[in-house]
Design a protein around this nucleic acid. Structure first.
Lengths: 159, 159
DNA sequence: GGCGTGGGTCTGTCAAGCAGACCTAGCGTG
DNA sequence: CACGCTAGGTCTGCTTGACAGACCCACGCC
């Protein structure tokens, strides 16, 4: 079996995990989405070891999920902060999905620490499945996985 | 700062990652969702080291995401396979979110390997944001995070 | 010139990942 | 009965990564 660079195997999930699959990455992203953008703040709030944080941030910048944005507060030296790119912003559904699952299946004793609201009406926002024809998809039963154009056969099967 | 067991901190995302945040976990789940349920098959198809797979499966069973189901094919010894519990099935949106992001932002050269279709109409299924009042939420701009009942103050802020 | 600050790097330890060999219960075969 | 095959693991030893804690250093301020 070839080296199987788990990040580039023929599967979008695996490739995604190659970008955001490391242990602290999601926690870092969670903070950046919250507006925490500076190294020391992220470090303090996630508790990630500095070295690891350095690595993760560098990797995320490398993958264009974050970009380093120089800024300077008046009377201060130039600094930089980490901001989401469009590619990074598109990870929001992943975070929301993780959040929703956690709220539901590993709830905190005193209730969720975070509500995600619709800005206009204040109602809670959640993820839903819908097909391109506009039908709501209520249960997993209603969806079917099909091989796409890039599908390659896989040897192991049992059915 | 206390030990900060990253899995139990006051954040549903962190707690979720405590369950499914390990490197191979999502790949294992991907296979189980595809219907690959037996140790050796999962091992062959993900390429995960056996030891790691043993650990991950045990952890997932421990967290009630999977359950070990005994079965026996006629003339064969009793075996068991790994099946999703309801808790595990609820992870589907997470997988879909990862898949969608990968398809979009780290595409395979020859197109996605997997299409997820609505069983009835064949149209592609995707995740959408919607608020409890029924409004579609098109952009992240339209959502606002608010502290929930379990929110605890955090020291670090910059705004 | 000394100090505080942000954003790191260096070092040593210890846990985890990994490949590859080995093990074992039970069944069908001869 | 002895034999070998198979699923689902264990065991071993090496390499990699996580981690804590100390150190660093450029800059702007006083």
């Amino acid at each position: 079996m070839e080296p199987r660079d788990f990040a580039t195997d023929n599967c979008s999930i695996a490739r995604t995990l190659g970008v955001v699959g490391e242990k602290w990455t999601f926690l870092v992203l969670r903070e950046v989405f919250r507006g925490v953008r500076r190294f020391d703040d992220i470090q303090a709030v996630t508790g990630a070891p500095r070295q690891v944080l350095t690595d993760r941030l560098a990797a995320l910048v490398d993958h264009a999920v974050l970009r380093r944005q120089p800024y300077r507060e008046p009377g201060r030296r130039e600094r930089h902060e980490y901001r989401l790119t469009d590619k990074g912003l598109d990870l929001y559904p992943v975070l929301l999905a993780l959040l929703a699952w956690g709220d539901r299946h590993v709830p905190a004793p005193d209730g969720p620490a975070l509500r995600v609201e619709h800005r206009d009406c204040g109602a809670e926002v959640a993820l839903h499945l819908r097909c391109a024809a506009g039908h709501d998809v209520a249960a997993m039963r209603e969806v079917a996985p099909r091989p796409g154009p890039g599908a390659r056969p896989r040897s192991t099967h049992h059915e």
